[in-house]
């Protein structure tokens, strides 16, 4: 049991980070504001979690200008996708194992 839990990735423990990765798994890229709206959280909260994922190199950041407005968009890196898939698998295994325990 401990073994299975240890496979859960600490980087994805928060709901916000799970949310960010979920969005980036199914979208090529997404900008900050759309992400904020989807997850329904504040600027600061989102920014700090994005920073954390960026540090792990699970997401990549692309800054550009649309007209005169700066636009920041994010995408999942290969490493990020891999890590997230493993995390999902660990979650599934955990649920399966508790089901058979009962």
């Amino acid at each position: 049991m401990d073994n299975i839990i240890s496979k859960l990735n600490k980087a994805f423990e928060s709901r916000v980070r799970l949310g960010i990765m979920s969005v980036l798994m199914v979208n090529d890229s997404i900008d900050f504001n759309s992400l904020k709206e989807l997850l329904n959280i504040t600027d600061g909260n989102l920014a700090s979690h994005l920073k954390a994922l960026e540090k792990e190199e699970y997401i990549g950041v692309k800054k550009q200008f649309i007209g005169r407005k700066p636009n920041t968009s994010y995408e999942a890196t290969e490493a990020g996708k891999e890590a997230f898939n493993q995390h999902l698998k660990a979650l599934e295994d955990l649920i399966k194992s508790t089901e058979t325990d009962e």
Binding site: G19, S22, V26, I30, L38, L39, L88, T98
Partner: peptide, 23 residues
């Protein structure tokens, strides 16, 4: 059991967000 529920909820939420962000 408590753990199981929260993990299940996590998976559910992941699915919801994936759907919401693409559909």
């Amino acid at each position: 059991m408590q753990d199981n529920l929260t993990h299940l909820d996590q998976l559910k939420e992941i699915r919801q967000i994936m759907e919401k962000s693409t559909k």
